[in-house]
Design a protein around this nucleic acid. Structure first.
Lengths: 198, 198
DNA sequence: ATCGTTCTATATCGATCGGTATATTAGTCT
DNA sequence: AGACTAATATACCGATCGATATAGAACGAT
């Protein structure tokens, strides 16, 4: 099985740059010209390496979730419901307040993606968001069973509340909210958290 | 001054339909073909009546703010800070949970607008959001002066928190959150609103 | 009836969109 | 060296983007 001419660019580095682009501008806002210009490769090279724009976006999405979503999976392992909520909110503040990251949120951008041709992407992103919220809900359901939330607390409502605040922080970061400002938002949001009976 | 041939379509009705379109799909996601098809008029008619796509969008934005933003100005007139917050959050739940309205939020869509050519729109929408948050902050500053918020409360942080929750509800509504679900989010967001000393 | 004005309809503009056909270059394998 | 394979570069595809040129149609004024 002959091997052929070796690739002249670093695919990992290219994915990094593509992630940054999609993160800033969303799926539809990022054109192939944006991509080839920033990645420093030609169109055919991009298509040979990644398939097409949609396939590239899905690869980027995986990287994004591994990087930006890491705090979520970690947060869900916290011992108490309050600590789960705290880590989720502060993680979001950290992510969106970090000047090293582009503003905004790939998930929110994708969820609100615009035209009809991106409907598939929009559905996928919607599914991702729902799955994320469901994971929080399951964790809070367990917390309630463990007596870690008051009996009248609703895990699904609390999970939805956390999701709302997290996505709202992403929108706010587009407007230039600082790390410190988002942390204070997280603190206020957390202060609404129901106290456990114990 | 001769008057010429009268317009054959209702501009008010056309603006209504355009508002609905932009609301659903955002500025960039709505193409001229979408517009002419839905409004039932031809391109030249649209340009003669409204200028161009950007000018049409600004007209639509005014209508949207008059309609969707009415609850905000009304809420700011409530007698207490708690009531202001309650009306803002429940108003957002009402707006985004109403099945008669398209999902999403014109403001959030615009804020996250994608490509470079819409940068002007994005800046404008960002300014709108900042102005909205500033109005809330001023109202809460007054409330604090009136002893309606505890001395350690931060009007700017609370205003930012309210904005975050409101925008988060808009994002959540894209995923299909119901009126009732959003109202429960609003209730949680309000559950520990800082109590005044009085 | 004719003129002036304004809206409407058709057809099209250049630019850009995502995506490729073709030919050349650079490498491994025998 | 020669054959085979894969990545590159150029140039281009049809479709769609926002926006218009042009010509005809419907009105008021005279």
């Amino acid at each position: 099985m002959p091997t052929g001419r070796p690739r002249e660019f670093d695919t990992e580095r290219a994915l990094e740059l593509a992630t940054s682009l999609f993160w800033q501008k969303g799926y539809e806002g990022t054109s192939l010209s944006d991509l080839t210009e920033t990645l420093g490769i030609t169109r055919p090279s991009l298509y040979a390496a990644f398939g097409n724009k949609e396939a590239l976006f899905r690869l980027v999405l995986q990287r994004y979730e591994a990087k930006a979503g890491a705090y979520r999976t970690k947060a869900l392992k916290a011992p108490t419901a309050l600590e789960v909520a705290r880590q989720l909110l502060e993680g979001a503040a950290e992510l969106h307040g970090d000047k090293a990251n582009p503003v905004g949120c790939l998930g929110v951008h994708g969820a609100l993606a615009c035209s009809d041709e991106a409907a598939m992407i929009r559905r996928d992103m919607s599914a991702h968001r729902i799955a994320g919220e469901a994971a929080i809900r399951r964790r809070l359901t367990r917390a309630k069973a463990e007596g870690d939330l008051p009996p009248n607390a609703s895990p699904s409502d609390l999970a939805r509340y956390l999701s709302v605040v997290i996505y709202g922080m992403a929108v706010q970061s587009v407007g230039g909210a600082s790390h410190a400002e988002l942390r204070r938002v997280a603190a206020i949001a957390l202060s609404q958290w129901p106290k456990s009976a114990r």
